[in-house]
Design a protein around this nucleic acid. Structure first.
Length: 553
RNA sequence: UGGGGUGUCGCCAAGCGGCAAGGCACCAGGUUUUGAUCCUGGCAUUCAGAGGUUCGAAUCCUCUCACCCCAGCCA
């Protein structure tokens, strides 16, 4: 958005087109099919399409490629619209639908028949496959290929009228059954589907295929640069064939880029849907999902997703992007902008035996270590506090910079304390620690010169608030779960979610509003859950941990 | 054994005939009341490989190799 236009091959092409006068105004489009939620791969496409339009003073349309009603639903339309908006992009004019051009497509189909460039074929799916040939053998002409224009016109009209059963007939382009490009072997333009369409209801019983719709949609909308992913490259000759043989109002051009494949994740709507359907996750917006809505709920910001897309670039090579880059993008944003707070995930009580029982000292702590503009928060200090159980050891080596029996540690934003005694129950489990404060260490080092070895976070027992914290980890424990067909189900990380129900947060955090991001110091970045969080029952999701270079656990 | 693509550091990626940007990751120091941030330094005599053209090649030519996509009435 405020970024300088990324230099990539698409920008070069567009720059040349503008310079040569081939295009006056750049028009792109983001054309999702409403058959699932948008994921991080779509975010790249959105970033490319809207970004290129924006960088070149052009426009970008949001168009639903809704040509297959069987798999689509308006539920997805609503989710997709919300996601694009949340990412921060504004499409040109109204939302478009391929389905609103259905009559035009039909008229063009009639045109093609009249030009002897299309015919109705009665081959069923199996027969058609047989006639199509293979990658190395040419196909054979359909026995229905030479029907008369009149007969084809009549048959198409009757297909439209619903006279034939699904699968009984299709309309095909008459191109070349021996083409080495499978897409040119008399591709299907229309198939019979007697289903209700989410936009057009029962108006149609035949629906155009992607190939017979896409280029024409682009032409109707005046799209100048139709940008898609690499797997459509083989369709480009067909895309152009239709533009060549139809009286379309403009001449769009298709360009392809390599799709995004983040490591440790799957980005295939089919596979994501399977995770949802089989309840491996809680829904399309589960925080472990690589969907836009899942990432949003996880605590990713729109800015970090845009930044990530910018970092990875746009090229024609397809590789796997290390998720560490995505993690870097969100840490970078949150480090700069997230308010700090303290949360104890695994509470261990510490009693400060020298501290008065009823005393509540209201300390003040900065909301951010390097940003004074974010101000300060009140931080109550009391005799009993919780620290994380991992932050105490009876004894430890010099590398351990936390609380050790007989040693000192600094309580973040408060006093230096020294551990005196470990209290255990009958089973030998530690129940609490007795310690004492070192006077005069509020904002100062100990007067005796014995500096604490480390800093740990804490929360007042009496003034803190219980909270639920959902700890997320990657959904897959394999770098490339997408490899192989259904193998990805074998690589599910069984520990991708663990819920901490007895976390303890400082009062300032209980005042969080939904979707507000924080850094729980020394733990990571967390967000108040978009749906489940409330002041009465705080719920936080772990977005990502802090970078941890500490060796020796 | 058809057609279409891609190969530059562990990952992403600039480079488009003049002598290998940058980011992520990693490593080593410094600062630090977050083992975070921040700061400093390190990290491809080499561009899939082999030939060739040229004063000079990652960039041009030739061949080879590897990987990806295409045989949905999905997009």
């Amino acid at each position: 958005m405020d970024d300088t236009p990324a230099s990539n091959f698409l920008q070069t092409i567009i720059g040349d087109d503008i310079a040569s006068g081939r295009v006056a105004t750049v028009v792109t489009r983001f054309p999702p099919e409403p058959n699932g939620f948008l994921h991080i791969g779509h975010a790249k496409s959105i970033s490319v399409n809207f970004g290129l339009a924006e960088a070149n003073g052009g426009r970008c349309n949001l168009r639903f490629d809704d040509t297959n009603p069987e798999k689509e639903s308006s539920v997805y339309i609503e989710a997709i619209v919300a996601d694009v908006r949340w990412l921060g992009y504004q499409w040109d004019g109204d939302i478009r639908y391929a389905s609103s051009y259905f009559q035009q497509f039909y008229d063009w189909a009639v045109y093609l028949i009249k030009e002897n460039n299309a015919y109705v074929c009665d081959l069923n799916a199996d027969e058609a496959r047989e006639y199509r040939g293979t990658l190395t053998e040419p196909g054979r002409n359909s026995p229905y290929r030479e029907r008369s224009v009149e007969e084809n016109l009549d048959l198409l009209a009757r297909m439209k009228a619903g006279e034939f059963a699904e699968g009984a007939k299709v309309l095909r382009a008459k191109i070349d059954m021996s083409s080495p490009n499978m897409n040119m072997r008399d591709p299907i333009l229309y198939r019979i589907r007697k289903v209700t369409h989410h936009q057009t209801g029962n108006d149609w019983s035949i629906y155009p295929t992607y190939d017979f719709a896409h280029g024409q949609e682009d032409a109707i909308e005046g799209v100048t640069h139709s940008i898609c992913t690499l797997e459509f490259e083989d369709h480009r000759p067909l895309y152009e064939w239709f533009l060549d043989h139809l009286p379309v109002p403009s001449r769009p051009r298709q360009y392809e880029f390599g799709r995004l494949n983040p490591s440790y994740t799957v980005t295939s709507k089919r596979k994501l849907k399977q995770l949802v359907d089989e309840q491996i996750v809680d829904g399309w917006d589960d925080p472990r999902m690589p969907t836009i809505s899942g990432m949003r709920r996880r605590g990713y910001t729109a800015a970090s997703i845009r930044r990530f897309c910018e970092m990875i670039g746009t090229t024609r090579s397809d590789g796997v992007v290390d998720v560490a880059m995505l993690e870097f993008a969100i840490r970078e944003d949150l480090n700069e902008n997230a308010v700090r707070g303290m949360c104890v995930l695994n509470p261990l009580k510490v009693v400060l035996t020298d501290y008065p029982e009823d005393k509540i000292e209201t300390l003040s702590a900065p909301r951010h270590p390097n940003r004074d503009d974010l101000g300060e928060r009140e931080l109550p200090f009391t005799r009993e506090i919780y620290i994380d159980a991992d932050d105490f050891r009876g004894e430890a080596n010099k590398k351990y910079k936390r609380l050790v029996l007989g040693k000192r540690v600094r309580l973040r934003n408060a006093y230096v304390i020294e551990a005196d005694e470990v209290i255990k129950d009958d089973n030998g489990e530690i129940t609490e620690i007795h310690a004492h404060t070192i006077p005069g260490t509020l904002g100062e080092n100990p007067a005796d010169g014995i500096k604490p070895k480390g800093v740990i976070h804490w929360v007042s027992v009496a003034q803190g608030v219980p909270a639920e914290v959902r700890l997320y980890d990657r959904l897959f424990n394999h770098e490339a779960p997408d490899k192989g067909d259904n193998m990805f189900m074998d690589h599910i990380n069984p520990e991708s979610l663990s819920i901490v129900t007895n976390a303890w947060i400082e009062p300032a955090l209980a005042a969080a509003s939904r979707e507000q991001q924080f850094q729980f110091e020394r733990e990571g970045y967390f967000v108040a859950d978009r749906f489940d969080h409330s002041a009465d029952k705080p719920v936080f999701n772990k977005t990502i941990g802090l970078r941890d270079t500490w060796v020796d656990g």
